[in-house]
Design a protein around this nucleic acid. Structure first.
Length: 273
DNA sequence: AGTGCGACCCGAACGC
DNA sequence: TGCGTTCGGGTCGCAC
């Protein structure tokens, strides 16, 4: 499942392959992938644009074009693959971008959950979907004071709030469990009751965990691969996520699985009181 | 405003 | 073995 580190990996892979290419045509096979604007306008506006740069904000991929930005969220299983024009479509390829050198960039998404927006460049940070995103993990404004302000009235469990993209952006279900384990915080703990020390640990461990995951090319669970087909190696580093009934690497107690806000949540009851 | 939950999807895993 | 059922994951929209 692409979280921040996976998107970073995909971004870096794509930059090597499609930078400075001009979009000659686009085929939208499954229309629901296009969230905004309507499909016809989307097509009309993206054709003849050149990919000037590719960046990332939270879990969003940002293709910077001449006049617009193409925003792409991979959600659960979105992937990009480079093919040649006229190569047959795979079953789950939903969008095809054709460049004027006849390279074909395919967006493939088994679950059809991913979404794309085409937004005027100057508006991307003032409008959906990027306008409500919180801080990147390495933003200098991410400190205890900031979290205190955001957390003070929250009655929800911290696990749920860590997944709230409007506070810190980029953390998904896998890394949330890892960050709370490293911070010795129970995922059910009411957010407003966190101490300063615990908030500092969340900040530190978020940076550490995501940085390490980026260095290892992300995590591979189920079918996730990056654009280059490289399997992320962070999966080998996971301490608690997906490890129900295995032993805690710190205290040897059994890791348990519960549901928090509808999400599968793994933790060590002894290390995370 | 904050919170909870179904909907969106479909392959894998599970239960019988 | 084969069938039907459940689950999961991020985000949005709706109900309360």
């Amino acid at each position: 499942m692409p979280e921040l580190p996976e998107v970073e990996t995909v971004k870096n892979a794509l930059k090597k392959r499609v930078l400075n290419l001009k979009i000659k045509d686009i085929n939208i096979i499954y229309k629901n992938i296009i969230e905004f604007p309507d499909v016809e306008t989307f097509k009309k506006n993206i054709i003849n644009q050149v990919i000037l740069d590719i960046s990332r904000k939270g879990k969003w991929l940002i293709f910077e074009l001449n006049d617009y930005c193409l925003l792409s969220h991979l959600r659960m299983e979105g992937k990009y693959n480079i093919k040649k024009i006229n190569d047959e479509y795979d079953k789950h390829e939903h969008v095809e971008i054709i460049f004027d050198n006849n390279v074909s960039l395919r967006y493939k998404d088994t679950r059809k959950f991913g979404r794309m927006y085409l937004i005027k460049k100057e508006e991307i940070y003032n409008t959906k979907p990027l306008n409500e995103l919180g801080l990147e993990p390495w933003d200098e404004n991410l400190n205890v004071k900031f979290l205190k302000q955001k957390y003070k009235n929250k009655k929800l469990p911290i696990k749920t709030v860590i997944l709230d993209q409007s506070i810190i952006t980029g953390i998904g279900n896998i890394y949330a469990d890892e960050i709370l384990f490293l911070s010795n915080i129970n995922p059910l703990k009411q957010t407003s009751k966190l101490t300063n020390k615990e908030m500092q640990k969340i900040i530190d461990n978020t940076k550490i965990t995501l940085q390490k995951a980026i260095e290892l090319g992300g995590t591979t669970i189920r079918s996730y691969t990056s654009e280059e087909g490289v399997h992320g190696r962070f999966q080998n580093e996971l301490l608690v996520h997906n490890k129900e009934n295995e032993l805690c690497p710190v205290c040897n107690n059994k890791i348990i699985k519960i549901k928090v806000g509808g999400r599968g949540t793994y933790y060590c009851p002894k290390c995370q009181k």
